[in-house]
Amino acid sequence: MSLTSDPPVGKAAANGAEREDYSALKVVPVRHPWRWAAVVVTAVLVAQFAHGLITNPGWEWDVFADFFTTRTILKAVWITIQLTFYGTALGFALGIVLAFMRLSRSPFLKSVAFTYIWAFRSIPLIVQLLFWFNLTYLYKRLDFGIPFGPGFFSFDTAGLVGAMSAAVLGLALHQAAYAAEIVRGGVLAVDGGQLEAAAALGIPRLRQLRRIVLPQAMRSILPNAANEVISLFKGTSIVSVMAIGELFYQVQVIYGRNGRVVPLLMVATVWYIILTTVLSIAQYYVERHFSRGATR
């Protein structure tokens, strides 16, 4: 087209005289043949996978069914749930304290919290668990008293730190470091104007946190916290190194005895999937509760 062309006289005339009427015409949508090809290929692959899962005798679904709800397995699932619960509860309780230490104005509290988080994020969980398990080797007795001074009362570590409590302690201390950062992130995400408004209204400090800051921080804490709970839940399988009868350990014990490795791993897998699903559903409802008044 040339820039100096004459105005399109013909079209302009048509525009002025009568406009074309498209309303009677049939609309033909765009076809996507390659999308259909991709659907067919994917469907075949999925069908093959399902076929392999169901028909391959190696999966031994009958053995799976035999063991899935036996007493031993159910007991192991219960221990796994307990480890997750206590690890999460203690971990987040300590994490909240650490988060507010890092947010405080005291340089000492800040650096203690920072160092804690640095240390426990640096040490692999499995190494830390073995440390706790061998605490008796390091410290024979625990004294409560003045540092470097006299003690008031003391414990034998052997009686204090059993395998189960060592595991809970290890998981909780590990979890606290991550929880602290998640909580801190959530608190920082709350608009500064909210605290200012609360302060201007004279609302007491603790009430500001509980009523104004935390409910809003929860919105950004929850998705990350749910991630952490789920990963801790599956992470409890690491505790099997301490010979605690949680799900993964018990499964190993059974297949060590009867040699049916694959179906028993499936028993553990399906339990992990079921419980993770329950947690995800719980997450949905808790998040919905804390999204009151929000537009997205």
Binding site: D191, Q194, E196, A197, A200, L201, P215, Q216, G293, A294
Partner: peptide, 15 residues
């Protein structure tokens, strides 16, 4: 509590 303050950006509690 004896002084009322009204902010430019309202700062209402959204939740």
């Amino acid at each position: 509590t004896r002084i009322g303050f009204v902010f430019q950006n309202f700062n209402l509690f959204p939740h």
